[in-house]
Design a protein around this nucleic acid. Structure first.
Lengths: 227, 227
DNA sequence: CGGGGTCTTGAATATCGTCAATCGGCGTGG
DNA sequence: CCACGCCGATTGACGATATTCAAGACCCCG
């Protein structure tokens, strides 16, 4: 994993030389580009921690990311999974309100917050983007809360449908995250997740091609579960 | 309840005469005022519904409000309670992403969205306020999701502490909402809420002065539960 | 007083969690 | 190339917590 000290120095360097702008031409959102640096994170490497100063904004280039909060006794609630193309880490305040880690080896575009914010001062489109991105997160969060009042079967069904939609799937979904990650996202235990998936497989609603490769044989059956 | 047609006509009238601006002088947020109208809503009256056009922004003057989403089988998740001073109904998109109802007889300041938005175009402070209000909602929503993975006792404790804090309490909290509202906020049943409150009362962590008036006898005990 | 809604309480059940053992894939090293 | 060991996933038996169904108490308002 690349330390935060290293990140700072990389960005300082880049800012001086504008090397990345010349080389990369990577837009942060839409077609808007702010001269960020693509960085590589190892599996399980921390990208930022809850309470840390929110000095950067991120975009997934490849791989996947989990954002989460933890209770003092260790229980973890994953608030979101971010997949290639997703922007995350935008904060209105000074600090990150949750933590983020790479799920697998991931490449993340890292952009200075100040670079985005100062542009937003004069550019209404950028300001609106920041707001609408936050509003979209809010919607997702509220739908996530709605998930957490459902039964285990319903939560799993909703999860599979969400992932199938976002992974722009062929007929087959390749999940990047472990059973523990799924459990912590859905507010269940790893055992309940496993058992429920097994049940769905027995009813041939889904089919396993390895524990993380899943074919949705009967999506409408899943949708029916999706109260 | 005042119908939406009536609301529209009230606001059109007001907009022409500016009567409310002269009479009311009611700021929407901070000291920013946009010429809204105070309106009265009966107990359980709908303020807006999920999916409706988000043409207005609201601020509680007196009384209290619940915002919620429902699953198609009727299960309801209350996403937030709004108390006097709280602003709600701000949307980045065109539609409301949840519904809102008055919990008790409430007076709500209703402001045209277009009036706020057009100001935000030229006024960075207003634009920033809109964004930071959405970001604050996002934080609350994520903490709410964190609530939903806790045990019943922990959820009740967190709820009591939250309400005690927001109701600017003396030693005594006067809850405006029913047990059913609490249950739907915490993802529990009404019976579990009732039983858990009874337990806390038996251990004299709290004391009842009527079913909705509660004294927090031992807040630190509640905080200890608040994992 | 009486009635309707809200709240509480009780007993039985169901769902999910816990604890524990086993399986299975995969990479490493002999 | 095969054996071992590790980590993740599955499965089973049991238990705890919250739900369900049902009855009764309380309280406010007419």
């Amino acid at each position: 994993m690349i330390s935060r000290a290293r990140l700072t120095s990389v960005l300082r360097e880049q800012s001086a030389s504008k090397a990345a702008m010349i080389a990369g031409r990577l837009p942060l959102f839409g077609d808007m580009e702010f001269g960020g640096v693509p960085m590589s994170f190892d599996r399980n490497a921390e990208i930022y921690g809850e309470g840390e100063s929110a000095d950067y904004v991120y975009r997934v280039i490849s791989g996947s990311v989990r954002a989460y909060k933890v209770l003092n006794d260790g229980r973890r609630q994953i608030t979101a999974f971010y997949l290639p193309g997703d922007v995350f880490g935008i904060e209105s305040g000074a600090e990150h309100s949750n933590s983020a880690e790479a799920i697998d080896k991931a490449t993340i575009l890292v952009v200075r917050r100040s670079s985005v914010f100062s542009t937003a001062e004069n550019n209404g489109d950028v300001a609106r983007y920041l707001w609408s991105a936050t509003a979209a997160e809010l919607k997702r969060s509220q739908n996530h809360a709605l998930l957490l009042i459902k039964t285990a079967k319903e939560r799993i069904a909703a999860f599979l449908l969400e992932m199938a939609g976002r992974l722009a799937g062929q007929s087959c979904v390749e999940l990047p995250m472990s059973r523990q990650d799924i459990a912590d996202y859905l507010g269940l235990t790893i055992e309940t997740v496993s058992r429920t998936l097994t049940q769905l497989s027995e009813r041939s609603t889904i089919q396993f091609l390895g524990s993380r490769r899943i074919v949705l044989r009967n999506p409408s059956q899943l949708r029916a579960l999706n109260a």
